[in-house]
């Protein structure tokens, strides 16, 4: 698995936010994107996820010599959790597990397994709206585990998490890299695990 970004430029509202960025990541590598507020970290991640049109440049994800569909191999975690307040944690995760699932993958976790990894086992049947901000974040992180996708794009994943949960997240990210995944994180905070690369915007 290899992610290549070449000469990427993104324009929003007439202003060039990302200008000619390029990097290559291979299996097991993690990239931390840092920069001041408004530097374009979120824009870069959205563009990589295919949610923003790019002005210039090429983004490609390759498995061996084959180029694979970027959107279907990407997990994107933004500031919003992507969960319905009226549904339970289990219903929300079950929906995403079914909706995002491609061919079943041995590394996809079951919902109880994923919740135990993020430390939220007790909240399986709780309505999502009843959770605290940190618990919501953890439930959103569990979404990354119920469907295996090699590329993780995480936008400020540490927000609202306590120390123990940060350690759990770091552990999950280490495991993902060790299994050959690629992670790109936009963050201001120390991640708690050795990252291989850093990109300053």
């Amino acid at each position: 698995m290899r992610l290549c970004v070449e000469g990427l430029s993104v324009q929003r509202a007439g202003r060039r936010i990302i200008d000619n960025i390029g990097f290559k990541l291979t299996e097991g590598e993690a990239l931390v994107v840092c920069g001041r507020n408004g530097a374009g970290k979120s824009t870069l991640l959205r563009a990589l996820a295919g949610l923003l049109p790019t002005t210039q440049g090429v983004i490609s994800l390759n498995r061996g010599v084959l180029e694979v569909e970027l959107a279907q191999n990407t997990h994107y975690l933004a500031h919003a959790d992507g969960m319905k307040l009226a549904l339970s944690v289990e219903e929300n995760l079950n929906f995403w597990a079914n909706y995002l699932a491609g061919p079943s993958h041995p590394r996809s976790q079951s919902i109880p397994q994923a919740l135990s990894i993020v430390g939220l086992t007790h909240a399986l049947r709780a309505p999502f709206g009843a959770l605290s901000a940190g618990q919501k974040r953890r439930a959103a992180l569990a979404r990354l585990l119920v469907v295996y996708r090699p590329l993780w794009l995480l936008d400020e994943p540490m927000t609202a998490l306590d120390q123990a949960s940060r350690a759990r997240l770091a552990q999950a990210m280490r495991a993902h890299c060790a299994e050959g995944g690629i992670i790109i994180v936009a963050t201001h905070e120390p991640l708690g695990f050795v990252t291989t690369r850093e990109l300053a915007l």
Partner: peptide, 14 residues
């Protein structure tokens, strides 16, 4: 759009 699901709906296979 508000709860972020709309972005994720783009990432499915459908």
């Amino acid at each position: 759009a508000e709860d972020g699901s709309l972005d994720l709906l783009h990432l499915g296979s459908s």
